[in-house]
Simulated scan of single mutants.
Amino acid sequence: MPETQDQAENKEIARKYPEEVISEGNLDLIDEIIADDYVEHNSAAPEPLRGPDEVKEYVSMLQTGFPDIHCGVEDLIAEGDMVVRRDRATGTHEGEFMGIEPTGKEAVVEGNHIHRIEDGQIVESWAQNDVMGLMQQLGLVEPPGE
């Protein structure tokens, strides 16, 4: 079945978040693509992120911990008002991150995200990132069996 114009536009919005906001540091874009009543259910956060300001804080935390962070999109799949995004982030842990002092180690984290998009803005997201793999790469957790 061919992709609709809305699905193509929704995929573009979902792509902008990792590539332009996280990788390029364009925090102003958050106000354009994240709805005021946005909610993100993130496996790495104890409470949902709510609204553009909390998203800016989250992205700033990522950029502080990994100043050279690059997040590339591997797959985008759209159906209706939903977009599934699979991405791969790389970076060097050179700043404090989640209370963890810099280790200087490079890390790769893969993640899966589902976004619900209405009227050109992301209104809700569900995020699953390989946080355990990140902690292992930073030397904070022993891999199983070692």
Rank of each mutant, 00 (worst) to 15 (best):
2 P>N: 09
5 Q>T: 15
6 D>N: 12
8 A>G: 05
10 N>M: 07
13 I>T: 10
17 Y>S: 02
18 P>A: 07
19 E>W: 09
19 E>V: 14
24 E>G: 03
24 E>M: 11
27 L>P: 02
28 D>M: 02
29 L>H: 01
32 E>C: 04
35 A>L: 07
35 A>E: 05
37 D>Q: 08
39 V>N: 06
39 V>A: 04
40 E>A: 13
43 S>Q: 09
50 R>I: 13
50 R>Y: 05
51 G>N: 07
54 E>A: 12
59 V>Y: 08
61 M>Q: 10
63 Q>G: 06
64 T>S: 10
66 F>E: 00
69 I>G: 02
73 V>P: 01
75 D>F: 15
76 L>E: 06
80 G>W: 10
82 M>V: 10
83 V>E: 05
85 R>Y: 00
86 R>K: 15
87 D>N: 10
88 R>V: 15
89 A>Q: 12
91 G>N: 13
94 E>A: 13
96 E>R: 03
96 E>C: 00
97 F>W: 15
98 M>S: 02
99 G>S: 00
101 E>R: 13
104 G>K: 11
110 E>H: 11
111 G>I: 04
112 N>Y: 12
113 H>A: 07
121 Q>T: 14
124 E>R: 02
126 W>Y: 13
127 A>Y: 04
127 A>W: 04
141 V>P: 11
145 G>H: 09
